[in-house]
Amino acid sequence: MSVLVQTELLGRRAIRESLRTPEALAPTLFIPVFFLVVNFGQAGRIFPSDSTPFLHGQTYAAFQLPSSLLLAASFGSAALYLVEDIEGGYFDKLRAAPVSRSALVLGRLIAEGAKTAVLTAALIVIALPFGVTIASGTAGLVLLLVLTSLWGMVFAGFMQLIALKTRSAAATNSGGLVFFPLLFLTPNFVPRDLLTRPMEIAATFNPVTYVMEALRSLILQDLQWDVLARGFGVVAAFGALMLFLNVRLVRRYD
């Protein structure tokens, strides 16, 4: 049986798992919406659409939406379900079957990507009443869904590494908090060229910056291929790294 079929089977199972625990999805949607509403409410009047060039005619909510999307994509529960599988013995059951180690990792990650796509679509719909439009059109909307989902998979891969290494729900949960400093070391509130010098340097070294800028370009402008290339490049590089490290860890898992 091919790796693809095994990945699909395990992915379906992971999606079923998420659908059967809808309560786990509530904070994943609520917290990003909360951040969007609060940040827009606090800074919307400081950055009016008609006199703020970096908004390209949209409201400040459109500038803030990528932060909320990345936050939602980084709240995935895949790694916590993995810890449950490890603690309950189901992970060993799968390891004792002739299942490709890549499929064991990818199944969950692909399910996480699909879940993130649905959450992203929901967040975009929620943002519409705040005057947000997707300036890059239908193609841009598709790219927005794809890029956010890929980031969701990358971060879920990072969380799975912690889960596989520590086999502890508490440690895995704590590991997820790493995203907050990464999120706040980006051009989260204003573009990079308006940041103070130390923050600009930090944002330049932070890979999340490039994903955020790519998402933001899709919301505020027409397709900006150079910005998109950087964003997709970051998720491709980190995605490959996470996949490699996860598969290696599963192979060496004792």
């Binding site: 049986m1 079929v5 095994q6 089977l9 199972r13 079923r16 798992e17 059967r20 625990t21 599988d85 309950g88 013995g89 189901y90 992970f91 060993d92 059951k93 799968l94 004792a96 079957a97 002739p98 299942v99």
Partner: peptide, 29 residues
């Protein structure tokens, strides 16, 4: 792995699946 069956000390089951889903998934794998 193709030739052995394993039932470990801790019954390795996924509590969110039904019995039928679990067996069918295992058979597909």
């Amino acid at each position: 792995r193709r030739r052995i069956g394993v039932a470990l000390q801790e019954a390795g089951l996924d509590p969110r699946q039904t019995g039928r889903e679990l067996i069918e998934l295992q058979a597909r794998l």
